[in-house]
């Protein structure tokens, strides 16, 4: 890698890290009482992974040249499948596996409708989001399910416990998944298939890669990741809510776009999504803690998204 490219690659990431720190310093100045104590950071770390884990999946789907809006419903649906299977079999493990599988199946349906029928993914997954949310609510009759049997189990501590009483375990899961997704996308053979499917599907086909298969698998991975996020949330709240996952759509997309992943496919950044999730997560908690109203959260998201995406686009155009 020559010097200029090296600088360019790390420029965006450095810039993003800088924005993240700036936001943090701003909070420390405006609300030192809150932001110089550890508690607020535990709270960031417990919320951010839900945006972040979905964001990782969304990054893969965007790199493959598609989009998926159905993940919030999948979070709720998989949480429900988890709760019901566990209630039925008495096994937490079976519940988790069934939940993950249900997410992957929805992803497969998304992928097949997009690739085999040829419907634009934004339309397919918009429909799927309503369908899955609706179906879940019909089956659950709109009722919440309490999952008190999760309390005190080893799996509960493993998934959402607090390490040393401070660090929420889900933030470690987010970190691990981020590393896995990064190595899948940029260091695994299948990552090449994703990159080229999104960059130029004809090139991919001409080199013997099935774009259809690649995209279906990517949708399935996102389905499973969204499901995992929903299962984690069920563990954290020890209750399954019919509204689970609602409200994550815009924040997750914001995190991914602030991070620098493009809408046009073929390129993306896992590190960016990772930081983007933290920036969004800290804003969400921080603005309110800083004594500003929730209206400010939206306003500041808006400013941040527009500035970040403008910078990313200008940097891309230069190269």
């Amino acid at each position: 890698m020559n010097v200029i490219e090296r600088i360019k690659t790390y420029n965006t990431q450095l810039g993003l890290t800088f924005i993240g720190l700036l936001v943090l310093i701003l909070f420390m100045v405006t609300a030192p009482g809150t932001f110089l104590r550890g508690r607020i950071y535990s709270s960031f770390l417990s919320i951010t992974p839900f945006i972040g884990i979905a964001g990782l999946g969304l990054t893969l789907v965007l790199v493959s040249g598609e989009i998926d809006l159905s993940f919030t419903a999948v979070m709720g649906f998989a949480g429900y499948v988890f709760a019901v299977t566990m209630g039925f079999t008495g096994s937490i493990i079976l519940g988790i596996l069934a939940g993950l599988a249900s997410g992957a199946v929805v992803g497969m349906l998304n992928g097949m409708l997009v690739t085999l029928i040829g419907i634009p993914s934004i339309v397919v997954t918009l429909g799927m989001q309503f369908l899955i949310r609706g179906a879940t609510n019909i089956i659950a009759a709109g009722q919440a399910t309490t999952l008190t049997q999760l309390a005190g189990t080893p799996i509960h501590s493993l998934l959402v416990g607090e390490i040393g009483g401070v660090v929420p375990a889900q933030s470690i899961w987010f970190l691990v998944l981020a590393v896995l997704v990064w190595s899948l996308l940029f260091r695994h053979k299948f990552g090449d298939h994703i990159l080229f499917s999104g960059d130029n599907p004809e090139t991919a086909e001409m080199m013997g890669i099935s774009v259809t298969r690649t995209k279906i698998i990517v949708f399935m991975i996102f389905g499973a990741l969204a499901a995992f996020s929903g299962i984690l949330d069920s563990f954290r709240l020890r209750t399954w809510w019919p509204t689970m996952g609602q409200g994550y759509l815009m924040t997750t997309m914001a995190a991914v776009f602030i991070g620098g992943t493009s809408m046009f496919g073929g390129e993306g950044t896992v590190y960016g999504t990772f930081l983007g999730a933290f920036i969004i997560g800290s804003l969400e908690a921080g603005i309110v803690a800083a004594g500003l109203s929730g209206f400010w959260t939206r306003f500041i998201y808006g400013i941040l998204i527009l500035i970040a995406v403008t910078i990313h686009t200008l940097l891309r155009r230069q190269s």
Partner: peptide, 24 residues
């Protein structure tokens, strides 16, 4: 060629040298 991809990815697309588990 994939326009946004590095040359080495283009040369080896579909025939990548891998280590374990399909890692490049």
């Amino acid at each position: 060629l994939g326009q946004k991809q590095a040359l080495w990815r283009n040369i080896f697309l579909g025939r990548q040298p891998t280590t374990k588990f399909g890692y490049l």
